[in-house]
Design a binder for these strands. Structure first.
Lengths: 138, 138
DNA sequence: TACTAAAATGCAACAATGTTACAAAAATGA
DNA sequence: TCATTTTTGTAACATTGTTGCATTTTAGTA
């Protein structure tokens, strides 16, 4: 789907900054950190604006947060860009390659249920696998 | 086990800073972030020194990192303070309460195997559950 | 097309977090 | 007690993320 339509569908005004950022994600296909997006879009988009763009994309269900080596955050396109309902879960695992640094969504892998102590209520779960991707494994 | 012995066992010199920090973890029993430890030990321990203490504890297998709401890191005592082998995994899930902010280790819950694409090698995994703990659930 | 209200942007300033270099101090073993 | 090695404190700096505010841009409407 074209970036313009995606923005509209998610109730986001069309701006050049947002289009640039969205194109990065559509083209790159992997999770990107704020810094990585910044490098891709260059100084066409202000640093603060970029934070706000990523934030708005997340609020509107266009991106979801991905834990990155337990220290920082990346963003990835949501699974269901086809439906506008953004009370979604994106409840899948992520894999980060420790060699090339790429982070990919393991869409097929729903995070399994984990038993918790009595009385605990689980609302969300984040699962990050680390290792080597097929490109870096040899 | 006494803090002094723990340090010795893990090849860490006994210093007042390290003892203070270690006592925090032994007494508190939950995962602590750098800032939380800093609050607990006060200005008896310098900020930079505290970073280094946490780092040395992790290197020597006394603490392990715990992902904290995908943005920052906490530290928790390792499962096996009894053996000195620190090529350990601490391969269990963690639970963070979104109300009180406490993070606990779910020692019993080994992280299940997640299928990955062909050619990927998984070396480590981090699983963080978010929700309400038994104290905050009502 | 021109106008208006609402939203988004850029900028400056700031806060929090984390790192490095280096000299001074403390801990260990002989 | 001494010598060596490790640890510490300090300062300086880099990175990351946030807030306030004036300006610009967008989208809808006349």
């Amino acid at each position: 789907m074209q970036p313009e339509r995606l923005l509209k569908k998610h109730n986001l005004r069309k701006t050049s900054g947002r289009l640039s950022v969205l194109r990065c994600f559509l083209e790159y296909g992997k999770a990107l950190s704020h810094g990585e997006v910044q490098d891709l879009v260059g100084k066409k988009v202000d640093r603060v604006t970029l934070y706000r763009i990523l934030q708005s994309f997340e609020e509107k269900g266009l991106l979801h947060k991905v834990p990155d080596d337990q220290v920082s955050v990346k963003y990835a396109l949501c699974d269901h860009l086809h439906n506008v309902d953004h009370a979604h879960s994106d409840n899948h695992a992520h894999f980060k390659c420790n060699s090339c640094g790429d982070t990919v969504c393991l869409e097929e892998s729903a995070i399994p249920n984990i038993p918790t102590p009595k009385g605990f209520r689980v609302n969300e779960s984040f699962l990050l696998l680390g290792g080597l991707c097929d490109q870096c494994v040899r």
